[in-house]
């Protein structure tokens, strides 16, 4: 099958998925949710004001129209305004997403590359004390709560040593660097453990395959076998794992953003939940779902580039 036909077909699959996802969001926010009118206006608001507000929020429309509104928002990314700040949600996203990305993207990138390199190294030293030590460190690292890392790093590196800012944010490069350094380090500590462990399992799965023995029998050196033969096969599962994480980077890390007072999307979402700012929560849900669908599609397409066997199916 031609690769373009495959991509087209795979892209068309997105349509039913989009309808399904928006339907769930619609059920959660429009059907199962109580009428928020009086909550917003106060218990004793006049019937007129209530009607007016319902109209403004689109709640007077029949249900199927409300559903279509959700679908429309998923395509146009026009989510209306926040109940709380009255700001356009699209604008909030446009402001918050880069802030989140300013620390999640470097963290994610470094963690992935470093994780792959470490797992290759561990695969090279498989079964030795180096291998066991790395696994031990990973498991220890994963057993400690992320809260502990955040508090310790804030106290030690920022307060005691004064290396970084304890919290806050400043817009624009390079002003944000002192604010995001610590979050990046914490992100690395949190994700390297699971990354290395996952990548290591994949590498070890591949390293015992017959084709690796064939490669060695040709006289290739072990590093070459790892970097060419093992790595390219390992990339197939790794790509799925990695690409699927990207939409969540937009959302930032809820806990890190809250503790460091970083005005990213994660912080915005947490605040919206406290404030019962439903349109914002709903918008974030739709936004991340659509991101997930798109990157899922992307990882499937990347798959065919790395794995020649997929195209025939």
């Amino acid at each position: 099958m031609n690769i373009w036909v495959y991509i087209l077909r795979r892209t068309l699959y997105v349509i039913p998925i989009l309808f399904g996802v928006t339907f769930i969001v619609f059920l959660l926010f429009n059907v199962l949710n109580d009428d928020p009118t009086y909550q917003l206006l106060g218990k004793h608001a006049s019937e007129e004001r209530a009607m007016e507000l319902r109209k403004e929020l689109g709640l007077d429309k029949p249900l199927y129209m409300q559903y279509l509104d959700v679908v429309k928002s998923a395509v146009t990314f026009d989510f209306g305004r926040s109940w709380k700040s009255k700001q356009l949600i699209t604008e909030m996203i446009r402001e918050g997403a880069p802030v989140s990305l300013s620390f999640t993207l470097p963290g994610f990138f470094i963690s992935t590359v470093l994780g792959i390199l470490i797992s290759l190294l561990v695969a090279y030293y498989r079964g030795t004390y180096i291998d066991k030590f790395v696994v031990f460190v990973c498991i220890c690292g994963m057993s400690i709560s992320s809260l502990a890392y955040i508090l310790f790093c804030q106290w030690y590196f920022a307060y005691e040593l004064g290396l970084f800012e304890i919290s806050g944010y400043e817009y624009g490069f390079p002003d944000f660097l002192p604010y995001v350094s610590l979050p990046i380090i914490i992100w690395l500590i949190l994700s390297l453990g699971p990354d290395v462990r996952f990548f290591r399992t994949i590498m070890l799965d591949e390293i015992y395959q017959d084709y690796v023995r064939t490669a060695r029998a040709k006289g290739l050196s072990e590093p070459y076998v790892l970097l060419k033969h093992v790595l390219k096969n390992a990339l197939i599962p790794i790509i799925t794992y990695v690409v699927i994480q990207i939409p969540f980077l937009l959302l930032g890390a809820l806990l890190i953003e809250t503790f460091f007072s970083i005005p990213g999307l994660g912080g915005i979402l947490v605040k919206a939940i406290y404030d019962q700012d439903f349109p914002v929560v709903k918008a974030m849900t739709v936004f991340i779902s659509v991101g997930y669908i798109i990157f899922n599609l992307l990882s499937d397409i990347l798959y065919t580039v790395v794995d020649p066997r997929v195209r025939l199916k």
């Binding site: 395959q209 017959d210 084709y211 023995r213 064939t214 029998a217 006289g219 390219k232 794995d307």
Partner: peptide, 24 residues
């Protein structure tokens, strides 16, 4: 030894289905 493998001594294996690398 690596100069000998594949050069002076070649080897073929029992499992033709899995002995070649699928992605090259």
């Amino acid at each position: 030894m690596r100069r000998i493998r594949g050069n002076k001594i070649g080897m073929i294996f029992q499992e033709p289905m899995t002995s070649l690398n699928p992605v090259f």
